[in-house]
């Protein structure tokens, strides 16, 4: 089917919508990217490899992507649960909880970082109980995971929620009539329908978390090789007026994210073909 002739040829508007998409993408995303990549090309291959293979850069990339992965995993599980509870179960204060989900986007990331550090610092509301248990959150990599989980929390919830809301109860009722247990219905009917949304949400949460700076900087401790994230490396290079070095690290982050997102999108496509709509 992967030919340029379109599957749902009855529907019009391909030219308009595709053209508009491409134009906007070109203007807002591709043009700046081109500037970034071309600037990096100024530095030459050898210098580029030198810059990005430095011990600290590699360590920071591992940390940024690793912590983002953990945060995304937490959010896939808890985000699904939260979306499920919000759509399916009545409980007091539901509207409020629904509203709270968007909070991480609305709060400037720096404020989120400050608020979380206030809470988890050794003298904070939560920190003073956690530190005696040997659980240090603020100024450790664990703090980075907490901050990233916070800033990327809305993604999974908000992608899964509309899909769950749209799910027709009739399907479940039919499955139940056919003798399926509640768990079977969940596994065979409900869960598969949410898989594309779950993957999308997870991918967005992951992508967002890799590049996050503002909130992490307050809670991380920023010790080189231990809790120094990749965006901080970019900032410190800029502070040395090292534009080229900064863009080099930025390009590597971008390439890594692109490959990962591309893989995730490919999986998502495959999953949606297997389970998704077109019923």
């Amino acid at each position: 089917m992967k030919l340029l002739n379109r599957q749902h040829s009855v529907l019009p508007g391909f030219g308009l919508s595709f053209g508009l998409t491409l134009f906007w993408l070109l203007l807002i995303v591709l043009l700046p990217f081109a500037a970034l990549v071309l600037k990096t090309a100024d530095m030459g291959w050898a210098a580029f490899v030198d810059t990005v293979s430095a011990e600290r850069v590699v360590a920071s990339l591992k940390l940024s992507f690793g912590a983002a992965g953990v945060a995304a995993a937490i959010n896939i599980v808890m985000g699904f649960l939260l979306a499920w509870v919000l759509v399916r179960y009545p409980f007091p204060g539901k509207r409020l909880v629904d509203a709270l989900v968007d909070l991480p986007f609305a709060l400037p990331t720096a404020v989120a970082g400050i608020a979380l550090t206030t809470l988890y610092a050794p003298n904070g509301w939560l920190g003073q109980h956690l530190v005696p248990l040997g659980l240090k959150v603020a100024f450790t990599p664990l703090g980075i995971v907490v901050a990233l989980t916070f800033v990327s929390l809305p993604f999974v919830v908000r992608t899964v929620q509309p899909v769950l809301e749209d799910l027709e109860k009739e399907l479940e009722e039919a499955a139940s009539c056919l003798g399926a247990s509640r768990f079977q219905i969940f596994r065979r009917v409900i869960f598969p329908a949410t898989v594309p949304a779950l993957i999308t949400g997870g991918a967005m949460a992951f992508a967002r978390a890799t590049g996050e700076f503002g909130s992490v900087i307050f809670i991380a401790g920023n010790i080189p090789l231990v809790s120094e994230i990749a965006p901080l490396i970019i900032i410190s290079k800029l502070d040395q007026y090292d534009y080229l070095g900064a863009t080099a690290v930025a390009v590597v982050m971008l390439a890594l994210s692109f490959v990962l997102l591309f893989a995730i999108n490919a999986i998502q496509w495959w999953a949606s073909r297997r389970h998704g709509g077109k019923r």
Partner: peptide
């Protein structure tokens, strides 16, 4: 040094 903040005020 346990924490390297990004600026003096921090």
């Amino acid at each position: 040094v346990p924490v390297l903040d990004s600026g003096g005020r921090a």
